[in-house]
């Protein structure tokens, strides 16, 4: 079993996310085993693995949508504990995009984007609208601002969800299978948006099976299985020369 090494990237200020020996249980079932992970500022990490391997649970621990039972998780120098304050502060720095978009169905795209800036940060409506439009332009759907989510295609909805996250000006973006619910021809537009975000220097952790995206964007690919990190490697090495048998079996399944 390949132990993951801590890829420390210089001083601790440059470390955005750090997992040390993290365990998590759902009831009596242990779903994360001794996870160690370091994501440096500006790094792009792609997490892959079979269904049920704990990759979604792992990424959801980063902003405390799931709580871990053992080990330490430190985000931008703040350790995640049960204290509300630590959770709030950590979430301020993290945006998240979900497989099922999770847009607010009763609000327009613009209102989806302005809700959190207005109510969490107290940004005046006009400024929040301007901010939202800027990000909607960046994800190339400014013309959909006044549409409801149900009137958009899946790809447009996901890009709206990305814009909504960016409106809170996060330092880290988490993507939990952002293209898995999309029709094949809509995957590209979302991946392009993510790649653009990556090239702007955003720190990103992406759970995805889009191996082309991993090759193009990732600094590191992490392979998980049965709640453990099995292998961590730069994408070139990961795809060309996987060390672990389990990784090779997985890759042969998804790469045709």
């Amino acid at each position: 079993m390949g132990q993951t090494s801590n890829h420390a990237t210089g001083g601790s200020q440059d470390v955005c996310v750090e997992f040390s020996n993290v365990d998590k249980w759902f009831g009596t079932v242990q779903v994360l085993h001794d996870i160690n992970l370091t994501v440096g500022k500006g790094q792009k990490v792609v997490v892959c693995g079979p269904s049920g391997s704990g990759k979604s649970t792992m990424i959801r621990c980063i902003n405390h949508l799931e709580k871990h039972q053992k080990g330490r998780i430190v985000v931008n120098g703040i350790e995640l504990t049960e204290s509300k304050r630590s959770i709030e502060r950590v979430r301020q720095d993290i945006g998240m995009v979900f497989q099922s978009f999770n847009l607010y169905p009763h609000l327009t795209v613009l209102e989806n984007c302005t809700l959190a800036p207005r109510w969490v940060k107290g940004v005046p409506r006009k400024d929040a609208d301007a901010l939202a439009l800027r990000y909607l332009e960046r994800v190339r759907i400014p013309d959909k601002a006044n549409f409801y989510p149900s009137q958009l295609s899946g790809g447009q909805q996901q890009r709206a969800a990305i814009a909504r996250s960016l409106c809170m000006n996060p330092k880290i973006m988490l993507f939990d299978e952002p293209t898995s619910a999309l029709d094949p021809e809509l995957v590209r537009e979302v991946l392009d948006t993510m790649a653009q975000l990556a090239s702007d220097g955003m720190t990103m952790v992406c759970v995805t099976h889009e191996m082309g995206f991993a090759r193009q964007v990732a600094d590191r690919v992490i392979f998980m299985d049965a709640g453990r990190v099995v292998e961590t490697a730069p994408p070139d090495e990961f795809f060309r020369n996987p060390r672990e048998r389990r990784t090779r079996a997985f890759l042969s399944q998804i790469l045709h």
Binding site: N63, L65, E88, R91, Q92, I94, G95, M96, F98, S100, F101, N102, L103, Y104, P105, H106, L115, A116, W119, V120, A161, R164, S165, M168, L174
Partner: peptide
């Protein structure tokens, strides 16, 4: 449940989420 995750990740307070998202839906 998805909107709950969205609100949490955006840092919305519970009662803001209840009033602005859950109640109208």
């Amino acid at each position: 449940h998805g909107v709950r995750d969205a609100s949490a990740s955006l840092g919305l307070k519970r009662w803001h989420h209840a009033l602005l998202v859950v109640f109208p839906l």
